[in-house]
Design a binder for these strands. Structure first.
Lengths: 320, 320
DNA sequence: CGATATCTTGATATCGATATCATTCACTTC
DNA sequence: GAAGTGAATGATATCGATATCAAGATATCG
């Protein structure tokens, strides 16, 4: 910048102002300086600016990558979320610092202006750990999670559960089963919505706990139902994979889907749509979720009032 | 740091040295300063250090997110790669700056110490664009891509093709078909390996070009074979989804897999393993790939000699 | 015409760390 | 006892940007 100043015959500070589009400089001077900057390939030194401005223009995204329970790195949704986040933050001039969750809080994370926590129903210990850092923080997850002292963005899992219940009721199903993990905050919300809506019609679903969200787990769940001679006519599975596994098992056992048993999954993965028969499911818009997460942190960083928000989820009825 | 200096009764510079484990300070003093730092929750100002040290301790990861052709954000592999990268870089004290590819090179990217380019066979324009930045750069992709003036890490797609060919030959298949997109550099390598190995036995496979890597595309490919009354006894599909689609179509057409036709996919997605019948496929270790990418950039940054490297891919024989 | 307002530019200090060179002090060695 | 050695610490300058305050040039007004 000093070099540019010399070239343009002005002072450093004028160069700085010219490049930051300040109104304090003569438009003519500004143009001249900017032209010189382009010509000589001037690059702003981000560290210097951040140092002086006492902010990093960076938001850290912490991804929970616990390699268990089948739903983590292999799941495509974190990437969609990341895409939305990245898109929104970069267009606002912020950088995205990607970190995987660790026990110790990274020095680079502490230097960020804000935090976004992603993961499979981020657990409380993670939230508490990063809460201590005292940075603006937004969490992806279920509403009400963690005492409302931080902002949560997520899709409306409760409503997802409700709409599945409504669908089952509307087609006359009376013996629904829920497959999923109630300890998982997001899935718990789905369960609550499902149960509450059904309760309004005097129906109590059977809860089948499964912590693995794999196809095998779905197969296994339905087999266990069959072995226990449980009567059921509809299944709400908390992931598309579970649903597909359930359908496979149903077919093996000689049941017809959807004639004998209706099955609805969750997530609207591309595979579900291609499945035979095409899977009915609940769709969440992750890309949009990422954008929302980013907007919330930015608002927090700029000291604006922010509220948690749940995005609507939509029931996609296909053939099951 | 100045405050710490006062508290400890030493100078700033001594504090700096104590915290960076320099041997220039008395071990006793070092301990005392470090204890004080911990007690008062001192945090290093990264910007200041980076400014003084003239490096950013940051590697930018540029992800190609072209939302087309079915294989992008919805594909889980970028996340695995990212996981490996993130793990390796953070443990080396570097930060991961996540960016999605854009036409203009981001200012933050220019400030990075190194670049990693990810994407579905990163195209040459992207490589050239970022090459101009003049930073140490490593690209994920196919070997030899782009004139060898930059480092490439990828799985050995050629070898993958060879091993599929070997398998087909070993079980007596004589009329193989290749389904994929030869314009895609990585897939082209698979094709070359496949063709070369077969040629050694006087066999020439049929090439079926498909640019979409979806299940439907696989279905469609096999149907077109059938309509054209082509004689074939084995299919090498360039993605698991294609393979599954192909198998579905084969079954619909009354062929038995693997009795009439052998099918081998690529990527070893979790779904392939759960497919009925369980899918034979070629596995790539993405996590490891990420680690490798990270190591190469770090080496480049530190001025060490670096070479492109292809990781072995392994044929996983299941039931198809 | 003098006084004030406006526009444009500059001098200086500062953000928080580290490299370099200088200094102090205790101790060894002949 | 003088000179030399090494360990520990400090003073100062510096990285590259921007905020603050000051000042010169020009325009506007009664």
């Amino acid at each position: 910048m000093a070099d540019l100043a010399e070239l343009a015959g002005v002072s450093k500070i004028t160069v700085s102002r010219a490049l930051s589009e300040s109104t304090l400089v003569n438009p003519e001077t500004r143009e001249r300086v900017q032209a010189l900057a382009r010509k000589h390939g001037y690059k702003l030194n981000v560290s210097a600016r951040n140092l002086r401005l006492r902010r990093s223009h960076t938001v850290a995204v912490i991804v929970e990558m616990k390699p268990s329970s089948g739903r983590t790195m292999w799941d495509p949704y974190p990437l969609s979320l990341l895409g939305g986040i990245s898109q929104e933050l970069t267009s606002a001039g912020y950088s995205v610092l990607l970190t995987t969750r660790q026990d110790a809080v990274n020095a680079a994370v502490q230097a960020a202006d804000g935090l976004i926590l992603l993961g499979q129903g981020v657990r409380q210990d993670a939230v508490r750990l990063y809460d201590k850092v005292g940075l603006p923080m937004v969490v992806w997850g279920a509403a009400g999670q963690g005492g409302d002292n931080h902002i949560v963005v997520g899709s409306d899992n409760r409503q997802g559960g409700v709409s599945v219940a409504e669908r089952f009721l509307s087609i006359g199903r009376r013996h629904p089963v829920f497959i999923g993990n109630p300890d998982h905050p997001e899935m718990a919300q789905r369960l609550f919505g499902f149960v509450d809506e059904l309760a309004g019609h005097g129906i109590k679903p059977l809860l089948l706990r499964r912590t693995d969200f794999t196809l095998e787990s779905g197969v296994d769940a339905v087999r266990s139902l069959s072995e226990r001679k449980v009567r059921f006519d509809s299944i709400f599975a908390c992931s598309d994979l579970l649903a597909m596994g359930a359908i496979r098992a149903l077919v093996e056992l000689g049941h017809s889907v959807p004639n004998d048993v209706s099955v609805i999954g969750y997530d609207d993965t591309p595979l579900g749509a291609s499945f035979l028969p095409p899977l009915s499911t609940v769709r969440q818009n992750w890309q949009e979720g990422g954008v929302l997460l980013a907007r919330k942190v930015l608002a927090l960083i700029h000291g604006q009032p922010v509220q948690s928000q749940m995005m609507a989820s939509t029931l996609v009825v296909r053939s099951t």
